[in-house]
């Protein structure tokens, strides 16, 4: 199973990022290989649609699970359509989140979080 975690650094010991669309990094954890790999987040500074762009990255990475702070309405809808489950992180490192997930200690994100409104530019 592959898991995408939102992170503030590139190491497995890095702290989690509670933001999804505007996370500093996405870290792909591959449970079979027990490896962590870094995916940059080009959507971090988007004017709008960062959550949608992030969702596409998660889908394209082949993940089944996302561990992050919360998912906005658009990201929630996209990930649900793709059959990807979201789980809520808490203050800690990526390794701690993976361990907590395996022990079924993380809460599943069953409702979308608040929409972060950004101004559309034209």
């Amino acid at each position: 199973m592959k898991i995408v975690l939102t992170a503030k650094g590139k190491e497995s010991s890095s702290p989690v990022d509670e933001r999804f669309g505007r996370a500093e990094y996405f870290i792909l954890y591959d449970d079979a290989a027990q490896t962590y790999s870094v995916i940059n987040n080009p959507g971090q500074y988007e004017n709008s649609g960062a959550g949608v762009k992030a969702s596409q990255i998660v889908i394209d990475a082949g993940a089944e699970v996302v561990i992050t702070g919360s998912l906005g309405p658009k990201a929630f809808m996209v990930l649900r359509d793709a059959g990807i489950r979201g789980y809520q992180n808490y203050s800690g490192t990526l390794e701690e989140m993976v361990a907590a997930f395996k022990e079924e200690k993380l809460q599943e994100l069953l409702t979308p979080g608040e929409e972060v409104k950004t101004r559309g530019r034209s």
């Binding site: 709008s48 649609g49 949608v52 762009k53 969702s55 809808m77 996209v78 359509d81 793709a82 559309g120």
Partner: peptide, 20 residues
């Protein structure tokens, strides 16, 4: 360029409020 379209692997979703 506005992230208004997304490919969920099952279909393309359109987010109209992001569309320019």
């Amino acid at each position: 360029q506005f992230n208004a379209l997304v490919n969920t692997g099952k279909r393309i979703l359109v987010f109209e409020d992001l569309c320019h």
